[in-house]
Computed example of a mutant assay.
Amino acid sequence: MKKTSVLEKHGFAGLNRWPGREQLDHTDSVADYFMHGYSPSGPVISKETGITAFGSCFAGNVSRFLLKKGYKVNAHSWDHNLSDIIRIDEIMVHTPALLAQFEWAFSDKPLGSVFIGSAEEKAQTYHGLEACKTIIKNTDFFIITLGLTEAWYDKKHGQYLWKFVPNKKLDPERFENRFVSFNENLNNLEKIYTLIKQNKPDSKILFTLSPIPLLGSYHGKSVICANTASKATLRAVLHEFLSQKDDENLFYFPSYELVNNYLNSPWKEDKRHITPDTVETIMSIFGQYYLK
């Protein structure tokens, strides 16, 4: 028999209650507690759809899964440690770096400089920059994974860097570590969305929040608390952004919520990366709702 909450007893109908383990073990738990309100009206990705997943290791997991299922996925073999475009380093997955790629691809805005190792260099790519630009322009289904809010800012050039600043180059007069604010993240998502829709009006966009925690924090406080603040900010930004839109081709997939609230043992020993079984489970759920 379904339990009745105190609020329901007092006439508050339509209450979505927090599930216990018993509820999460039910066959309909994913539909009821995770995809409810976020499901597309039907599968929207066919074998002909050009898919590009933007982000680091989690985006790589998405790409490899879709490729294995026979879907048309760009940059599926790229190592995020060796690429600064599309597949990007896990400490670069902030909205300023993501926005810069779309401004470069669709508006020809210069990428600027990045820091790699101990040298200031231009962005490195698996293919030439024009080939990467073509990939972005030819994408039909954009999967954009947000990762973190900590970023280094170059006060001299007035831009966010794409990678961390090596300790020996930590000139406080030039560089500062910033927590990208709620409003700045929200504005960046709006700009990304507008650029894609102006240039690819029929394309579909799906946002996710990476479940992968911060590798580290420069804020001088608990890295676990820093990670909580980072993820909470980005999830709140996504909620606000999606709430403002009435677009049947704009989606949110709750990968973050599934990893942290659905699976019992999702993490490898490092407590940062998810196990192959977790990837398979999460992506199978994605496939159930999105793949034709």
Rank of each mutant, 00 (worst) to 15 (best):
I51M: 08
L67G: 02
D277N: 08
N16R: 15
V165R: 05
G14R: 12
P213R: 06
K156F: 04
F164A: 09
E173Q: 09
A226H: 10
S181T: 14
Y262I: 00
E173N: 10
I224K: 13
P96V: 05
M92N: 03
N81P: 00
F286N: 03
F251V: 01
K2E: 15
Y33N: 14
K204R: 15
V6T: 03
K109H: 09
L242A: 04
A97Q: 04
H157A: 12
G37K: 10
K292C: 06
C132G: 09
G158A: 04
T233P: 09
E190S: 14
H273Q: 00
K155N: 07
P211I: 01
V165Q: 06
G20Q: 09
P172I: 09
R21V: 07
V165L: 08
L146W: 14
F141C: 02
H80L: 08
S29C: 14
G112P: 00
E257N: 15
S56A: 11
G70T: 04
Y71L: 05
D25P: 01
T275P: 04
D154C: 05
N183A: 13
R272V: 05
L263N: 01
E150L: 00
S29L: 14
N185G: 09
E257G: 12
L7V: 04
T281A: 10
F54Q: 11
Y289G: 01
K221H: 13
V237Q: 12
L98N: 09
S63E: 11
G37H: 11
K3Q: 11
G50A: 13
I86L: 13
I136A: 03
D171M: 07
F164P: 00
G14N: 13
S255K: 13
R17K: 15
V237R: 11
E176F: 02
C132H: 15
I136H: 02
F253Q: 13
W78L: 10
F286R: 03
N261Y: 15
R174Q: 07
E120M: 10
F253W: 14
I45R: 02
R178L: 02
N167C: 02
N167V: 09
D154F: 05
C57W: 03
D25L: 13
T52D: 07
H36N: 15
K268L: 10
F141K: 03
A226K: 09
R17F: 07
L82M: 08
A232W: 04
I86Y: 07
I212S: 09
F241D: 01
T228L: 09
L67W: 03
N177K: 04
T145V: 08
N74H: 01
H10K: 11
D32P: 01
A59K: 05
K69L: 12
Y160M: 05
W267P: 05
C225D: 14
A123F: 11
P201Y: 04
S230C: 00
